[in-house]
Design a binder for these strands. Structure first.
Ligand SMILES: [Zn+2]
Ligand SMILES: [Zn+2]
Ligand SMILES: [Zn+2]
Ligand SMILES: [Zn+2]
Lengths: 133, 133
DNA sequence: TACATAGTGTTATATTATAACAATTAAATT
DNA sequence: AATTTAATTGTTATAATATAACACTATGTA
């Protein structure tokens, strides 16, 4: 019989930081997060980075690697937290999570020349968004 | 009549830094590059970062965003310097540039839900390499 | 030559991220 | 409930990554 484990309930710091990122219209950087949560008692970078690490692992947020910024998952707690795709506007920096089953299928099934498959990936598309075209 | 512009000849600093990265068996980080070229007279981080910027723009090297590291283009001066794909071993950190025309075609033709196409992208696959499986 | 563009050298500083340690809280096992 | 195990927190210090600003030099173009 399988042991039951607790659901992923967020801890205090995790919840504070997730809420902030989740209601932000754009990805947030770690030190901007820090500045915004200082009034809630989170005073040190490490407290922020630790919460970010966990939230990323849970798939609640994703890191935009090319921007060192964090965005809440747009796919209602991404089942595919390990398989992320974003579009990034190079003009206004608008960043959107892409949710395309054909894309995720293609990438999950992609084999390199050694026949190797990868279930985990991060894809960042760059271009101009609708507004900026 | 079209004016002739000079070919992309590398400058002294660019050449020194490209040579170092090109002969490295693994991606190099900026400060490791700095350390290695100090005997050649390149003394400051900015000299390294400026050369890296230009080399990236030329497509001679690529940045592995999730690792903050730089690797020489494996595709004999990537025509597709704006469309890069890598596999990253999470055990030994072996990083390989993927050269797959079907992948690049698929991604270049991918349309998001607004019908938007992106000719520029960066894709990083994560998994275990042959050795580490 | 004159002008424009790109590259250099330098110092200082900004931004992003982790190490190390002690203490506390929450969860799982007995 | 008591034990013990794992996860989280708070804190200070420091490491690693990257850019600003300025004066100067080299190169390409007209
Ligand atoms: Zn997601
Ligand atoms: Zn835009
Ligand atoms: Zn390449
Ligand atoms: Zn490996």
């Amino acid at each position: 019989m399988k042991t039951m484990y607790k659901e992923h309930t967020l801890t205090k710091n995790q919840q504070i930081i997730f809420d902030l990122i989740d209601k932000s219209p754009e990805p947030m950087k770690a030190y901007s997060i820090l500045f915004n949560v200082q009034k809630k008692g989170i005073k040190a970078p490490l407290q922020v980075y630790r919460a970010l690490d966990k939230l990323v692992k849970m798939g609640k947020i994703h890191k935009i690697e090319s921007r060192n910024a964090f965005i809440a998952c747009q796919n209602s707690s991404c089942q595919v937290s390990k398989a992320t795709a974003f579009s990034i506007c190079e003009m206004c920096e608008k960043i959107t999570e892409i949710s395309s089953s054909s894309l995720s299928k293609y990438l999950a099934n992609f084999k390199d020349k050694d026949g190797m498959k990868y279930s985990k990936y991060n894809l960042e598309f760059f271009g101009l968004c609708k507004k900026c075209r």
